[in-house]
């Protein structure tokens, strides 16, 4: 039995970004450059949110209507992806049962960072009409995954969903994206 000697850590892309941030922090006016780069990155991310096509119940039909011709979510760069590996937004559309909750959690964990969740409709937000006298529905999807935007309605109009996505874009546009990613990996 021979134990391998510990390998020296390979400098990853993240580490080089962290080093660049450190240098920029010390330079006069470096913060300004960092902010501009972050602004560009955030603009790109906000304008190409790819949601996971993940319909649970009735709200999924309104989500489909939002993707169809009349409300056309492709206009604002929202293209449905069928696999969590390619998605960065999860629209939880509809009620989630206790049996389904671990699967929703696993799908969320399979999505690459940075990821966002929109809770669409009353049932996903807090159980809605299924809150009382019920043994099978989860009382809100935020017990399983962290939610960024809540869209009320039962089901919300497609416009209401688009408004929720626009609201999420506002949130993405002001995020300290680079700094947070580096800090999360450190």
């Amino acid at each position: 039995m021979s134990t391998q000697p510990p390998q020296p850590p390979v400098p990853s892309r993240l580490a080089s970004i962290a080093a660049a941030i450190d240098i920029l922090d010390q330079l006069p006016g470096g913060n300004l450059i960092l902010t501009k780069v972050e602004y560009l990155l955030n603009w790109g991310r906000a304008a190409s949110l790819w949601p996971l096509t993940f319909g649970l119940a009735c709200c999924a039909i309104e989500m489909m209507a939002a993707f169809a011709g009349r409300f056309d979510l492709d206009r604002i760069g929202v293209i449905p992806r069928a696999t969590p590996r390619q998605a960065d937004l999860m629209i939880v559309a509809g009620r989630c049962t206790i049996k389904m909750a671990p699967i929703v959690r696993r799908l969320w964990e399979q999505m690459p960072e940075p990821k966002y969740v929109i809770s669409m409709g009353s049932c996903a937000t807090c159980g809605g009409p299924f809150y009382y006298d019920n043994y099978s529905i989860l009382k809100g999807i935020d017990q399983v995954v962290p939610v960024d935007v809540y869209v009320p309605g039962c089901p919300p109009r497609p416009e209401a969903l688009i408004e929720g996505i626009l609201k999420l874009q506002e949130k993405i546009k002001v995020e300290p994206f680079l700094r947070r990613t580096v800090a999360a990996q450190a």
């Binding site: 937000t125 807090c126 960024d148 935007v149 009320p152 209401a160 408004e163």
Partner: peptide, 12 residues
């Protein structure tokens, strides 16, 4: 009106 989406559930 139908636009009432929020970042926080307590606003609802």
């Amino acid at each position: 009106h139908y636009e009432a989406s929020t970042f926080n559930r307590s606003n609802l």
